[in-house]
Nucleic acid binder design. Structure first.
Lengths: 141, 141
DNA sequence: CGTTTATTTATAATAATTCTAAACTATTGA
DNA sequence: TCAATAGTTTAGAATTATTATAAATAAACG
């Protein structure tokens, strides 16, 4: 599968073509919502609500399907911070996160701002697929 | 609430007394399973299964209640690595984790083995409640 | 003891997510 | 251009981890 980066912003149909996904009305609309502004974080529910507000008619199941397909295509990345729901990040470049626990909101930390100095070797027979750093915050944003 | 550290191993009833939790049969049995050996990681389901094997009669709801009470008392810490289920770690001292994605297994990384060199300041009005580093691994353990 | 208060439990409820299978739509190539 | 094919969407049911409820039980305390 060809690598596709969602930023800088490209035409949604070009994005979908590169990801080998048919440019359906629903996927085009979601790609626009996700990638037209700056990088952002969504949950299935938040994106679904946003689509409804924007008068995009689609089902919640399609939002789930699309988020997963986009993730597989490298357009999104999943961020695990909270066992009660799944977050997706449109910023797929290497970086880490602040998680505002009181609000359930994620924000990006610049790649250079976290510097892991010493990293242990992966155990025999395994390889590192990713390193996630989550800085959990309490208090107002 | 008095701070209670589960290691080195203490008598379960002492642990519970310090945590201001009544020493019921169920809590004593779970404390024994959790803290009698070395540090470990469990899920509610895994601990429930283990209790059944050990012929401890209790309900799954009690396992959930107890895990949360122990976490509040500082005997356990929750580790968020997988949106499909919640892990609890009996090691409450500062350290980070390997997550073996293929097996769904957590292992500890020694505190000194990860060195975060530069940490960004907490945004205005917030404070850092915790920094989690998860090294995700693929392949056999 | 007996009373109060905390705990346990079976069961129902919840909530996020996935599944199913029928209806629909984009693609392909004659 | 159009029919056939293959991929997509969807409503609704199913699943799964977890939490809530409220009645029964057990610990604490005088």
């Amino acid at each position: 599968m060809e690598t596709v980066a969602p930023f800088p912003y490209r035409d949604p149909s070009e994005l979908l073509r590169r990801a080998r996904l048919r440019p359906t009305r629903q996927r085009l609309a979601l790609a626009r919502l996700l990638f037209a502004g700056g990088p952002r974080h969504v949950t299935a529910e938040s994106l679904f609500a946003e689509a409804q507000t924007a008068n995009v008619r689609l089902s919640l199941a399609t939002v789930y399907n699309t988020l997963h397909q986009f993730t597989e295509a490298g357009l999104l990345r999943e961020v695990v911070v909270d066992s009660s729901c799944t977050y997706f990040d449109t910023n797929v470049s290497e970086h880490h996160h602040f998680f505002h626990e009181d609000q359930g909101v994620l924000t990006d930390i610049d790649g250079e701002e976290v510097n892991i100095h010493a990293l242990p070797a992966a155990p025999e027979g395994t390889k590192i697929s990713r390193v996630d750093v989550i800085i959990r915050l309490s208090g107002q944003k």
